[in-house]
Design a protein around this nucleic acid. Structure first.
Length: 548
RNA sequence: GGUCUGUUGGUGAAGGGGUUAAACACGCGCGCCUCUCAAGCUCGUAUACACGGGUUCAAAUCCCGUACAGACUACCA
């Protein structure tokens, strides 16, 4: 196609492709270094599936001393969401992710292969499209939406393969005169690839995860540049990953069927094909069907949800790693104290059938993590969460740091610590009774001993005759047993089990009375520790409240 | 309709022709321990390799069909 006409189709371009080829030279990295990207669209909140891809990309780049960059794919102007980029950056930051290159806020970015926002790369794409036009490998298409619909329905009727290809691609036969005439009339147009591919040919691509893939060659005259001057995903992907020298394209398997388009474009443009790694995305069980996690249908899987629930980001990362590499979990169990970064992930250990997201497993991982951190860390993290989602609780925690830390420390510093919290949002429910501000003398969960006079009697005898703050745990329990003997309860559980009818109850029943009197709950951590932390004055007060 | 991908127990999954191997983790259940709970420990979770053919002395594992599920089939990504 002649130069003048091409410049009329894509006006205002000041460079040619050699300029860009020189502007973005090959990266100087070691052997085996993986350059990969996280390429989200700013079309809403960040989704667990996005985070999944990101964790993989980042891990692969890190373990090969490579580069992971973020590229914003905002070529669909209609679906853009306000502050979309900031939302992504924010969400990703919450999980401790950083990038070697890419946008750092709506305005600024780091890295020398930018811009990293596709809408700012318009001229680049157009320059390459211009090159294809000049070579006769692309052409303008004035076909309207209605005309395309007609072509489609014709194809459907005659049971042909659907798409803009071969003889159906009418605009590829337009003469330059006809093009000029339509331009003069001011008709809108797009730029399409003049594809010489043959659908009956097979192409073979090696996928890092799936191995050998045999696919039909693409023969559709793909849209390169849309009516608004921006490229389609396909064209932008090929240009960007070439210029940014991406070595590995890590993405969801929803792209598998458009792989022939990409391979074709790489070939036509003369670019080196990157290595593709197609992951099965996270799925969800929706009633009886299993489907890919979706932004529209699963808003509860926005990563902000995990933040709100107070699931620590480490747990989410660990879970995602478990799902990603089949041998990770085993490695982790054997190397609990090591940094996750010491695990070497490999593409061939990645599962190819879609994983169903398993909340229970996530929570179990989370429980383990929270049981292993120190009481002070637990306090800090709970407070950080509460400041955002439960102001009342945050205030109480701030006023009573010492008390809170002591509480978190109950049964924590052992080889087999308590595991009762998976989420920060459950903490308050578990320990509120330790704080005067939150304790309420109602809803006592009395168990076997529920006669109020007997309860009062036990509390009375215990406080006046047996409880001594200075006792060790052993002494404390011995006294509890002594009281049981005095009041007609079994102090020895084995004896009680053999002859339950000989006693009014047993030491468990009696200590439950004290437990409930102090906390209103029948299930709590170690009672001795709770009593030590509450202190004699509070104990007296709580016992008195039972009398009311 | 076409193209592609997948299918191991209640769940996530390991394994990729061969001694009755179906690991491991989560969940659930019995029990033990125990002042309750959590944790920990025993044991268990009945017929788990979609179905039908084929290749082979031998198949969850290789091949072909069928069924089912998912993805793509846009001037969305």
């Amino acid at each position: 196609m002649n130069k003048e006409l091409v410049e009329r189709l894509l006006p205002g371009l000041t460079h040619d492709i050699s300029y860009y080829e020189e502007l973005y030279p090959k990266r100087n990295l070691g052997d085996g270094a993986i350059v990969t990207r996280y390429a989200p669209s700013p079309t809403g909140f960040v989704h667990l599936g996005n985070l999944f891809m990101l964790s993989i990309a980042r891990k692969m780049a890190r373990q090969t001393n490579g580069i992971v960059y973020m590229r914003i794919e905002d070529t669909d102007q209609e679906r853009l969401v306000e502050n979309g980029i900031s939302k992504i950056i924010e969400a990703v930051k919450q999980f401790g992710f950083t990038f070697d290159e890419g946008p750092i806020n709506e305005e600024e970015e780091v890295g020398s292969y930018g811009p990293y926002i596709q809408s700012k790369r318009k001229e680049i794409y157009q320059t390459y499209a211009k090159e294809l036009l000049l070579k006769g490998l692309a052409y303008p298409d004035f076909t309207t939406k209605e005309e395309l619909d007609m072509i489609r329905s014709e194809q459907e009727k005659s049971k042909r393969r659907i798409g803009y290809y071969g003889k159906w691609a009418r605009s590829r036969f337009l003469s330059e005169e006809e093009i000029i005439k339509k331009l003069d009339e001011g008709k809108p147009y797009i730029i399409r690839l003049r594809n010489n591919g043959d659908f009956n040919n097979k192409i073979v691509v090696m996928d890092a995860i799936r191995g050998k893939l045999e696919l039909p060659e693409d023969d559709i005259d793909q849209v390169l540049i849309k009516n608004d001057g921006l490229p389609t995903y396909h064209f932008a992907h090929v240009i960007d990953d070439h210029l940014m020298h991406t070595t590995h394209v890590i993405r969801g398997d929803e792209w598998l069927s458009s792989l022939p388009i990409h391979v074709n474009l790489f070939k036509i443009l003369g670019f080196e094909l990157p290595i593709y790694a197609h992951f099965s995305p996270l799925n969800k069980k929706d009633g009886e069907t299993i489907r890919k996690l979706s932004k529209r249908k699963d808003p509860e899987l926005a990563v902000s949800y995990y933040h709100e629930m107070g699931i620590p980001s480490e747990a989410l990362m660990l879970y995602l790693a478990t799902v990603t590499n089949s041998n990770f979990e085993e490695w982790y169990l054997a190397h609990e104290n090591e940094d996750i970064d010491n695990f070497t992930m490999s593409f061939n250990k990645v599962g190819i059938s879609g994983t169903i997201f398993d909340m229970e497993k996530l929570l179990s991982i989370s429980k383990n993590i929270l049981s292993k951190i120190t009481a002070l860390e637990m306090y800090d993290k709970t407070l950080e969460w509460a400041r955002k989602y439960d102001k009342e609780f945050a205030n109480v925690l701030e006023k009573n740091q010492d008390l809170a830390v002591k509480t978190f420390n109950i049964e924590r510093n052992s080889v087999k610590p308590r595991k009762d919290f998976a989420m920060f949002s459950e903490v308050k429910q578990g320990i509120y009774y330790m704080f005067e501000e939150l304790f309420k003398n109602e809803n006592y969960e009395w168990q076997k001993i529920n006669d109020i006079n007997e309860i009062k009697n036990i509390l009375d005898v215990y406080l006046n005759k047996y409880y001594d703050e200075k006792d060790s745990e052993e002494e404390w329990f011995n006294k509890m047993k002594k009281m049981c003997d005095e009041l007609g309860y079994a102090s020895n559980m084995k004896e009680y089990k053999q002859n339950p009818e000989k006693f009014k109850g047993n030491v468990a029943d009696v200590s439950t009375v004290i437990r409930v009197a102090l906390t209103t709950k029948s299930k709590t951590p170690n009672l001795y520790d709770i009593m030590q932390i509450l202190g004699l004055e509070t104990i007296k007060k709580r016992f008195a409240l039972v009398n009311e």
